[in-house]
Nucleic acid binder design. Structure first.
Length: 927
RNA sequence: GGGCGAUUAGCUCAGUGGCAGAGCACUGCCUUCACACGGCAGGGGUCGCUGGUUCAAUCCCAGCAUCGCCCACCA
């Protein structure tokens, strides 16, 4: 093995091997375990959010595969209607054409072509992460099978009256020319104005003042409303006003909706261009006056001068014209919330159109109950509140989109406008006995992308056919996703799953946080703080990183600033940390919090951790390969250290298994990290050296040590594999044969099991004692400034019988690890030398005679510090014991612990004081 | 307006009704035969604030402050 761990040397080769050998497919035996990947957009590039989410899913999948489950991680991508159409359209636009020049069929053919050649790059990137998806079953939401499922669902819902077509106001995107669902609307606060306009009364008695943020809509006003109890205006109810610029007369009406406190207390009512006004219009039978085109320009219903003007041009013109007529009362600055499309970012218009809707309440009811009853569990549970909140107030879902790319709505119209819904034109002609001379044309619209996503858990498994896969893997075990798509996706999958399979689509929903930069900011191009997971895996130099962050900016003037902060944060770009370090970092950050602030310091630390593991393996192999490791049981003797590390391994296996079960990947990662570094490397490997290098070690002890080094390492690799698949495989391939373990791959080895019998309390106590002994000597050495390599004589006083036994048993270890020349017991404290540095192990004293070389002041300072620390603790504890309430009310074991701690502290303090006096009495050295 | 979350070391974050933790950063010593992507030893905290419950609160409760997110039709 190379001296330094180099992820790039090992990772991709292993992935290729795994995939070629078909390790990712379900084994066909064991109990089913299934996760559906949230299908990334086919246009997508892997970002930190994906990388984080896929790390978690892959860890779960690998863990369950190693538990022997029949494990499926369903792969696939989403056709992402708007996003994909925009990508291809942009391409055509750059050639000076529009999609309309091509026509619908040609355009769709082009999108498919794009998908074949450029789409799905993200699936390659997932492979770089080590994601063990079953690619042999990869699906696409526009596949034949999935499209079939979509139309079956649409038809069934339509037949049951749960899908309907209706003319009403929708959120209209004037750039993309499509309707959007409520969820696709982003409300943003923006600076704007509130215009107060005067509408003259027809009775000649002055005018009323109405306020609006969108003056141009006044051309579509159908009424002015006041509150019925508003004394200022009560006399006007039933009167009419002249709508300026149009000459139309409109009524003054009374409606509870009006807030008399706001503005003038009079509201202009524009039923065709405002959701509230629409409701009021319905109540009062007002006409719907649509004044906009699909581009949000003014149409031909408005007076001639304004026709064809863009809405914002029209606004200026209308304000100017009203002002000229003295009809502007005042203009205020005002902060309004503007609705924008989540894709186009254009300001949306409420717009009157025919659209398809899902009547959602009947579907929501059982979906709410499923979570209430516990058929589905949110992890963390708190998210169920968010779910309930939305589901209980859910509105009908607008599912039609005026796009070309997507599942076309399976509805046809005849010339009279009758609607026929069915699988095909032929089927419809059959079912409805339509003569050949009846002309049918299919609905032009396609379905919201999320409609097909909602079917993903069962459509990927072959539904509506009752396939074996469906029977085996549905419902899935867990859905892993971010809280940002609980409404878009999670809720809709639950509703559709229950409706069409009668079962929930998954038992648990693990909601993870969203990845942000290390300042807690969302990562975005314009902030210039985007981290690309592939750059962290493969490394990137600073110039390339800056180029990546500054090209293609919407606001190019930000480039210098972005370059500056990038150079400041990452002066040398990124080293190639490798997928394992990245995965391990994500796992250790996966605590149940809403935000995952990605700190690049963590990934560096974890790359170092990989290197540590790598070198521990080198050490083990150096000392075991081609050596007798005593594979047969009777020539093995386990020492204290061996029993201890095996015990600790089991404890760690238990912690890690529980952590995986509870979705606490941070706990799993920490347990693995601490076990490997702080226990196996820092202590066990060091404790093994005195045995391995001793001249007189028995064959049985040598075998025991070599065996344990291998056994624990091999088990640890399996334990760490779900989080760090590549490095564990690479090392395992070398270690397993030496350890006598057979198998083609670590992936399909069993996950280590917790073995109660291997927990060894005695060994744990003794090694804890050993550590405190060794650390005591080291502390003296460090603080007395004694060279690390210099062997020291050690005297022990106040040793118990147990201390003596332990010293004798572990003399070799103690001498090596603490670098001792010799160890001697003193008969009594009277024999203690005057000038010695002291440290305590329990009540036993460790003394290093300084033979006149002691740094008196340094030692006094050291003792003083120690004394202070213990005195403070003693003070705390004695005052507790002095408190009758405490001794009376606290549980017995707590009181007992405090008591024994007090007596221990008293002894220690006495020892230290005595020592202090002794050093203090030494003659001051004369230089 | 409604709902949810956060506040712990310089930074990023764990944590528990009974001795405050990790990684990174920092200080000193060490290129010792697995590893300088390393070893050993250290420094660093009023656990946001104010009350309450309790023998005991960083943890439970109430209020406040600051920051953040989601939902909602106030022109």
């Amino acid at each position: 093995m190379q001296k330094t761990y180099d992820p790039q040397n090992i990772e991709q080769a292993w992935y290729k091997t795994w995939e070629e050998r078909g390790y990712f497919a379900p084994s066909g035996s064991g109990k089913p375990y299934c996760i559906m990947i949230p299908p990334p957009n086919v246009t997508g590039r892997l970002h930190m959010g994906h990388a984080f989410q896929d790390t978690i899913m892959d860890a779960l999948i690998r863990y369950h595969r190693m538990l022997g489950d029949n494990t499926l991680w369903q792969a696939g991508t989403d056709h992402a209607g708007i996003a994909t159409q925009m990508v291809v359209e942009r391409q055509i636009n750059s050639e000076g054409k529009t999609r309309h020049d091509l026509g619908r069929d040609n355009f769709i053919a082009l999108v498919w072509d794009w998908k074949e050649h450029s789409g799905g790059g993200i699936t390659q990137q997932l492979r770089s992460m080590g994601a063990s998806l079953d690619w042999s079953r990869e699906r696409f939401t526009m596949d034949e099978g999935l499209s079939h499922a979509v139309s079956e669902v649409f038809i069934k819902l339509y037949d049951e009256g749960l899908i309907y077509r209706g003319k009403r106001l929708v959120n209209w995107d004037p750039v993309l020319h499509t309707a959007l669902s409520d969820l696709e609307v982003i409300s943003e606060e923006e600076a704007g104005n509130l215009w107060h306009m005067r509408y003259p009364l027809t009775n000649g008695e002055g005018f009323v003042v109405v306020a609006t943020t969108r003056p141009e809509t006044m051309l579509g006003d159908a009424a002015v409303a006041v509150h019925p109890d508003d004394d200022r205006y009560r006399h006007l109810i039933g009167e009419e006003v002249i709508l300026p610029l149009t000459g139309r007369n409109i009524p003054v009406i009374a409606d509870q909706y009006v807030d008399p406190e706001f503005g003038s207390g009079c509201v202009k009512i524009t039923p065709a261009h405002d959701f509230n006004d629409y409701e009021i219009g319905q109540r009062h039978n007002l006409p719907l006056i649509n004044i906009l085109t699909i581009d949000a320009a003014l149409n031909d219903t408005v007076p001639e001068p304004y026709r064809g003007l863009d809405r914002f041009e029209a606004r200026k013109q209308i304000v100017a014209d009203l002002g000229a007529q003295g009809l502007i009362d005042k203009i205020e600055d005002y902060t309004l919330t503007a609705p924008r499309g989540d894709r186009s970012h254009a300001i949306l218009e409420p717009y009157l159109t025919d659209q398809w809707y899902v009547k959602i309440k009947p579907l929501a009811k059982p979906a709410i109950e499923a979570v209430e009853k516990g058929d589905i569990r949110f992890v963390p549970d708190n998210w169920s509140k968010t779910y309930f909140e939305w589901m209980r107030n859910i509105q009908d879902w607008c599912i039609s989109r005026q796009l070309w790319w997507g599942h076309r709505i399976p509805a046809w119209y005849d010339q009279k406008g009758n609607i026929y819904v069915g699988r095909s034109e032929e089927e419809i002609r059959d079912n409805f006995n339509l003569k050949p001379d009846v002309e049918l044309r299919q609905d032009e619209d396609v379905l919201d992308t999320w409609f097909s996503s909602a079917l993903w858990p069962f459509s990927t498994l072959g539904w509506p056919e009752q396939t074996e896969e469906l029977n085996t893997f549905y419902p899935g075990n867990v859905l892993v996703t971010g809280f940002d798509i609980i409404f878009f996706w999670v809720a809709r999958m639950i509703m559709m799953g229950l409706k069409f399979t009668g079962k929930v689509p998954f038992r648990e929903i693990y909601i993870h946080g969203l990845v942000r930069d290390n300042d807690g900011q969302t990562m975005s191009k314009s902030k210039g703080n985007i981290l690309d997971p592939l750059d962290l895996i493969n490394g990137i130099d600073i110039d390339s990183l800056i180029e990546k962050r500054t090209t293609g900016l919407m606001q190019p003037h930000l480039a210098p600033k972005i370059e500056k902060i990038t150079r400041k944060h990452y002066p040398e770009g990124f080293r190639a940390y490798g997928a394992d370090a990245l995965r391990f970092t994500f796992a250790s950050l996966a605590s149940p919090s809403r935000n995952i602030n990605f700190d690049t310091g963590r990934i560096e630390g974890n790359r170092n951790f990989c290197n540590k593991l790598w070198n521990a393996a080198r050490f083990v192999l150096m000392n075991t390969e081609d050596k007798d490791c005593g594979s047969s049981g009777d020539n093995l003797e386990l020492g204290i250290a061996d029993r201890w590390i095996i015990s600790r391994l089991n404890k760690t296996v238990q912690t890690v298994s529980n952590a995986f079960t509870n979705y606490r990947f941070d706990i799993a990662a920490r347990a693995i990290y601490e076990f490997i570094w702080n226990e196996y490397c820092d202590w066990y490997v060091e404790l093994s050296k005195p045995v391995l290098y001793a001249d007189d070690a028995s064959a049985a002890r040598l075998h025991g040590t070599r065996h344990t080094l291998l056994y624990v390492l091999e088990s640890t690799l399996r334990m760490a594999h779900p989080l760090m698949p590549f490095i564990t495989e690479e090392i395992w391939q070398r270690v397993a044969p030496v350890a006598g373990v057979e198998g083609e791959t670590i992936m399909l080895q069993p996950f280590p099991e917790y073995i109660q019998e291997e927990i060894d309390v005695d060994a744990e106590h003794e090694v804890t004692w050993l550590m405190s002994f060794i650390m005591g000597v080291r502390r003296i050495r460090g603080e007395m400034d004694i060279a690390p390599g210099k062997p020291l004589p050690l005297l022990l006083s106040c040793a118990s019988d147990l201390d003596r036994d332990r010293v004798h048993r572990n003399e070799n270890c103690l001498k090596t690890l603490a670098r001792l020349k010799n160890i001697a017991f003193l008969a009594g404290s009277n024999d203690e030398p005057e000038d010695a540095a002291i440290s305590l192990v329990g009540e036993m004293k460790l003394l290093i005679p300084m033979a006149g070389l002691i740094d008196r002041d340094a030692e006094l300072a050291r003792l003083d510090k120690e004394l202070n620390k213990h005195a403070r603790e003693l003070e705390r504890n004695t005052s507790k014991l002095g408190n009758k309430q405490f001794t009376a009310n606290a549980p017995e074991d707590v009181v007992g612990k405090v008591k024994s701690r007090v007596s221990e502290l008293e002894t220690m303090i006495a020892s230290l004081k005595e020592q202090y006096k002794r050093i203090d009495n030494l003659p001051v050295q004369q230089d």
